[in-house]
């Protein structure tokens, strides 16, 4: 089950994040994804990542593939001395945004651009927190699981 973003999804994302733009020929949203977020009573973190969202990703995934294209996560892994996998970066360079077997919990009605955007914010909050404070703001899921679309 591949994911294809609709025009309305793309427009919503571009409006929400003016640092992003859409490349029609390649069907990619890319640019600067800025956020200001706070987990519970934790610190507010403002940060940005340069990303590419593949709007029509053929792989068997209900979410669009997202890559961080400035090498910041790889640099983070070297700086902190931890594997990129522990910063939830897949082997192909895409972000591991969700544990497949938890997809239904967080996307009960299937893909939703608003949930997806929040997914990205919390993902990057976690990374920036890990970088800044040297620890996880909350315990990350272990790797594994497969998608279940039933």
């Amino acid at each position: 089950m591949a994911c294809k973003l609709r025009e309305s999804d793309i427009n919503w994302m571009l409006e929400k994040h003016p640092g992003l733009h859409y490349i029609y020929e390649r069907d990619i949203i890319c640019g600067v994804f800025s956020f200001r977020a706070q987990y519970g009573e934790g610190p507010i973190i403002s940060d940005h990542y340069t990303i590419a969202i593949f709007c029509n990703y053929p792989a068997d995934s209900p979410l669009p593939a997202v890559c961080e294209i400035n090498g910041r996560i790889k640099q983070m892994s070297l700086l902190l001395g931890i594997p990129t996998a522990d910063l939830h970066l897949n082997g192909d360079g895409t972000l591991c945004l969700i544990r497949p077997d938890k997809f239904k919990i967080w996307y009960p009605e299937g893909f939703d651009i608003r949930i997806f955007e929040q997914n990205l914010v919390t993902h990057f909050y976690w990374l920036s927190f890990r970088e800044r404070f040297g620890k996880e703001p909350w315990k990350g899921e272990e790797h594994g699981g497969i998608y279940n679309f039933d």
Binding site: Q38, Y39, Q118
Partner: peptide, 12 residues
């Protein structure tokens, strides 16, 4: 400011 108390995975 995006305040959240749950994260839509992969984080628990």
């Amino acid at each position: 400011n995006n305040i959240f108390t749950t994260a839509p995975s992969p984080w628990r």
